[in-house]
Nucleic acid binder design. Structure first.
Length: 210
DNA sequence: TCATTAACACGGG
DNA sequence: CCCGTGTTAATGA
């Protein structure tokens, strides 16, 4: 039995389902920044996050990216689920935000588990709702907030996900995720540093007071 | 007015 | 040297 599976999902799934997952799923570890699923790729597994975080990115026709939302431990990526059911290809790119550990459940188990395990059904529906809410939050952010505020929100989120006030990230990474340019991000970060909100270092940013 | 793009210098690893 | 960073000038929305 994989320790984290019981630890993270023991409160959500009955023992019988935990054992089923343990039987059929493959455990996989991805170092930070690894692309786990890319756009256009066929989806054959449902990922259950045991540890770490995944960022879900969208890409436009010019190859410019944009962060949609993060998936944290104890959750799954619902865009993946949608693709599983329809046997479609991925509309998004899933990339490891931090070092990530997950269980890959072959997608053909979905249908059976949905009817057999009420806890699984609740888990999936709750995840849909969570993902949808996060997406709404992102849309609000794009539509109603200025870039400087979106940058602060992203830094706070990253501090949370990396569980540290020192965030390992480059200005270019931030620009890409916010669908902006590095010049602008560097300028905003410099402004925030002058306001003593954060401290800039090469490849990392320390949050001082937000 | 403010964002993007390109270009360049600086410097730390 | 390589690459992330800080800045500026030109251009566009």
């Amino acid at each position: 039995m994989i320790f984290q599976l019981q630890e993270i999902f023991g409160g959500v799934f009955p023992d019988k389902l935990i054992q089923r997952i343990n039987q059929v799923a493959t455990q996989r570890a991805f170092p930070a920044d690894t692309i786990i699923v890319d756009i256009g790729q066929k989806i054959e597994h449902i990922p259950l996050l045991l540890d770490g975080a995944i960022k879900v990115m969208r890409e436009d026709e010019n190859g410019h990216e944009m962060l949609l939302y993060h998936v944290e431990k104890g959750s799954t990526c619902t865009m993946t689920l949608q693709c599983c059911i329809g046997q479609a290809k991925s509309e998004i790119r899933a990339q490891a935000e931090t070092d990530t550990l997950l269980m890959m459940v072959p997608s053909h188990h979905m249908e059976e588990w949905m009817s057999q395990y009420p806890a699984w059904q609740h888990f999936i529906l709750n995840n849909y709702q969570q993902r949808f809410n996060e997406l709404l939050h992102t849309i609000d952010s794009i539509a109603f907030h200025q870039l400087d505020q979106r940058l602060i929100e992203l830094l706070q989120k990253k501090a949370l996900l990396q569980n540290s006030n020192i965030i390992l990230v480059t200005h270019q990474d931030l620009a890409t995720e916010l669908h902006s340019s590095r010049v602008v991000i560097s300028r905003l970060l410099k402004k925030l540093e002058n306001q003593k909100v954060l401290k800039l270092m090469r490849n990392s940013i320390e949050i001082l007071d937000m």
